Computed example of a mutant assay.
Amino acid sequence: MEETSARTAGDTAPPLARQFGGNLLEHALQYVKERHWEVLPGAWLESDSGATRCSCAVPACGAPGAHPLRRDWTTHATGSTAEVRRLWSREPRAAILLPTGRTFDVFDVPETAGCLALARMERSGVAPGPVAATPAGRMQFFVLPGGAAKAPGLLRQLGWSPAALSLSVRGEGDFVAAPPTRMGRRGAAQWVHRPTSVNRWLPDAAEVIAPLAYACGQEP
C-alpha cells in the first residue's frame, strides 16, 4: 500500500517517513529517539531452499517473522538506544515490535474500513494519530494508552455490539509489528499516516471510535 494522500497539514516528512530506507536498526533507533516508544526485537524471515520460513522454525507459525522470541518478552522491551544497538547488532533481520498498553494502544480494523474511517475523520475534522497498514489487509490506528479498555463501553454507548464488528484492540500485554517489518510472504508493514511532529499527541479512543465503528459496520 502506498501512503495515502490524506496527509496532515504541516507534515514535513522527517527521516522516519522514508519507509524502506536504511536498515531495521536505524528504524528501531528512530522509534526510540523520535517517538520515545519502547521496541523489542522479534522473529525474522529466513530463506530455506527457496522457501521462506519464520526463524522460530515452527511449521505452522501464525505470525511468521513478526512475533516475540520469548514468553517473557514484556520485560525485555527497551527505550535505550544503546540496548537497541546491541540487540539489533546481534540479529539485524529481527522484526521491530512495539509493545502496546504503554505509550499507546492500537485499534485494528479491515483495510477498507480503515480507509473509510480516515475519510470520515478528515471530513469531520478529527485528526488521527499514526496509522499503519499490514500486508494481511488490516489498518492499525494508534491512540492514547487505555483505549483498549475503553473500547467495549464506548461501542455500546454508540449502539454497536463489540462482537459484531471486525474491530480488535491491542492494549497491555500485546504488541504490533512496526514498519518496515516484513510479515510473512505478503510483504511488509507500512505507514499510512506516518509518525511526525504533527501527530505526536495521540487521539483519545473516544475521538476515533465512532468513525471506526461506523466503517466496520459497513463491512459485509
Rank of each mutant, 00 (worst) to 15 (best):
T181E: 12
V192H: 03
T12S: 11
L155P: 15
A119Y: 07
A163H: 13
A136E: 09
L158G: 07
V169G: 03
E26G: 03
L212T: 03
G187A: 11
P211C: 04
L154Q: 12
D11Y: 07
F20Y: 14
L97P: 00
E46G: 05
V39I: 05
M139I: 06
L167C: 06
P220S: 03
K150V: 10
S5F: 15
D105Q: 06
V39D: 00
S166E: 14
R182W: 08
G153Y: 08
P162M: 12
A177P: 02
A17L: 05
C54P: 04
L29G: 01
R102E: 08
V198C: 01
L87A: 13
R120Q: 10
S161H: 14
V109I: 10
L212A: 02
T100E: 05
P110L: 06
T100S: 09
S80L: 01
G114F: 06
V84E: 00
L165F: 06
P99M: 07
A51S: 13
G171E: 10
V39P: 04
C56V: 06
R182S: 07
R200M: 08
W88K: 02
Q19Y: 08
V208G: 02
L155H: 10
L167P: 08
D204G: 08
V143A: 09
Q140T: 12
C56Y: 08
A6S: 12
G146V: 09
A43I: 04
A13I: 12
L118S: 03
Q190V: 15
Q218F: 05
P145H: 10
E219V: 06
L167Q: 04
R194T: 03
V143M: 06
S80M: 02
G79A: 15
R123T: 00
W44K: 11
L69N: 11
G50Q: 05
R123K: 09
A66R: 09
G42C: 05
S161A: 13
A117K: 02
V39C: 02
A6G: 12
L212W: 00
P68Y: 10
R71S: 14
L25W: 04
A17G: 11
E172C: 09
T52M: 13
D48F: 12
T75S: 15
G217I: 01
Y214H: 11
E219C: 03
V109R: 01
R85W: 03
C56Q: 03
T74R: 15
P152L: 05
P92D: 10
K150G: 10
T52S: 14
